[in-house]
Structure formats: C-alpha cells, structure tokens
C-alpha cells in the first residue's frame, strides 16, 4: 500500500487536472493548446503509473485491489487517448465519448483508495 501511495497521488493529480482542464476549456477559461498539454501530460502519467503498478508484487490478499487499480489506470489511458483525438479532427464530441471511462476509473480508484488510505479525504 505504501508503494502505491505515490502512484496514487500522481494519478489523482493528473486526473483532476485533466478533468478540470476540460471544464475550464468549456467555460473559455483555458485555451485549446493548454488543454492539449494537460491531456498529453496526463496520458504520460497514466502510462507510467501502469508500468509502476505492474512492477509491484502485491500479497494475495491485495491482488484484487491491485487488478482493480490497474483496470482504472487503463481506463484513464483510454479516456485520454479518446479525448486527444479532438485535437486532430477538431470534434469536441471526443470529450463526451472519453467521459464514461474516466468516470468509471475514478469510481474504482475511490474504492481502492478508501480501503488503502481511509483517512485520505477526512470529513469536510
């Protein structure tokens, strides 16, 4: 779990930056080029995270969570790859198509995150 923490932090920050980037792009508070940079950076982080997670050898009891987190990171990659198509053909529908995957992935990492780091998001 300790080995997962820095990976988790990188994934969460990238995902949040990418999601907020899309929101602020839609509200005209972020330019197209800046959004592209954010998504590309996030994709690099997700790919790196997958490599790092694969390199871990979890105990049997955590194997399911390990797999779940891997699945989430793959969903984030697919989501970013889909979103990035927007910069090739100019169609913003790709953001909409990318969304369900990032949403599903974020549900997964919240499940695993809640189990691994129960106090990560204390009462607000």
């Amino acid at each position: 779990m300790r080995a997962m923490w820095p990976i988790h932090g990188d994934v969460e920050r990238s995902l949040t930056r990418m999601s907020l980037g899309q929101i602020l792009y839609k509200t005209d508070d972020l330019g197209r080029a800046e959004l592209k940079t954010r998504i590309e950076q996030a994709l690099v982080t997700y790919r790196g995270a997958e490599t790092r997670i694969r390199a871990l050898s979890p105990p049997t009891s955590l194997r399911g969570d390990h797999e779940q987190y891997l699945a989430a990171v793959r969903l984030f990659q697919e989501s970013a790859s889909e979103a990035i198509k927007m910069f090739k053909d100019g169609r913003e529908e790709h953001l909409l198509a990318a969304y369900p995957k990032s949403q599903e992935g974020s549900d997964k990492i919240r499940e695993v995150g809640g189990k691994f780091w129960p106090n990560e998001f204390p009462p607000n």
Binding site: E12, I23, S102, Q103, D107, R110, G113
Partner: peptide, 15 residues
C-alpha cells in the same frame, strides 16, 4: 476535499 470522482461528477454535467 475534492477527490477526482467528485470532479468527474461535475465534468459530466459540463460535458
């Protein structure tokens, strides 16, 4: 106080 999951919920509304 803003897990990615929550931001995703808002993103869904925006998109």
């Amino acid at each position: 106080g803003y897990p990615p999951q929550t931001i995703q919920e808002i993103l869904g509304k925006v998109l």
